[in-house]
């Protein structure tokens, strides 16, 4: 009769390999907007970036509260004004990450505009991320990817 120990020794590395493969696979399949680590990376970026860089990291069209902003210069001016006003996400805590579904638009407005925006303009795998700072709570609409971080498709708040 063979000892059980060598079997366990063979199984352990196999389990580890499977776990690593699953973790890697899930990272590959879970969109960046729905990965907490990527969102934290984005928040750190937002807190340090200039308006030009924030524009590059923004999706278009952009949703400010329930207003659709399309020209890139308008999005740039928005970020420039945000920074000038002292807006940032210092010490932001992620309160929740909710994948965008066919019903998400209803929390932004009941009309055709929000329905069409969420169904036609927001990429698959997008999420609404609620973050709380020392000053206020904000919803970030995130989707797509650039340099491993999700793009910002919208900001709503303070809630």
């Amino acid at each position: 009769m063979r000892n059980a120990t060598p079997v366990r020794a063979r199984v352990r590395p196999a389990v580890l390999v499977i776990a690593v493969v699953i973790a890697v696979a899930s990272c590959a399949t879970v969109p960046p907007a729905q990965q907490e680590a990527r969102v934290e990376e984005l928040i750190a970026f937002v807190n340090a970036a200039e308006a030009e860089a924030l524009l590059e990291q923004s999706g278009r069209p952009f949703l400010l509260d329930s207003e659709i902003i399309e020209p890139s210069n308008d999005i740039y001016v928005m970020w420039r004004n945000f920074i000038a006003a002292g807006w940032s996400l210092p010490g932001a805590q992620i309160m929740g990450i909710a994948a965008v579904t066919e019903h998400t638009y209803r929390s932004y407005g009941t009309g055709l505009e929000m329905q069409a925006f969420f169904s036609r303009r927001v990429p698959e795998g997008a999420a609404v991320v609620r973050v709380q700072t020392r000053q206020a709570t904000w919803d970030l609409l995130l989707g797509g990817e650039r340099d491993g971080m999700p793009l910002i498709y919208g900001i709503r708040g303070p809630l």
Binding site: L64, E67, I69, E70, D74, M78, N81, F82, A85, G86
Partner: peptide, 16 residues
């Protein structure tokens, strides 16, 4: 392009 622009200008100015 007018109301949206005015909203984004004013909101971003008074965001705090």
């Amino acid at each position: 392009h007018v109301f949206g622009r005015m909203y984004s200008l004013l909101k971003s100015t008074y965001v705090m």
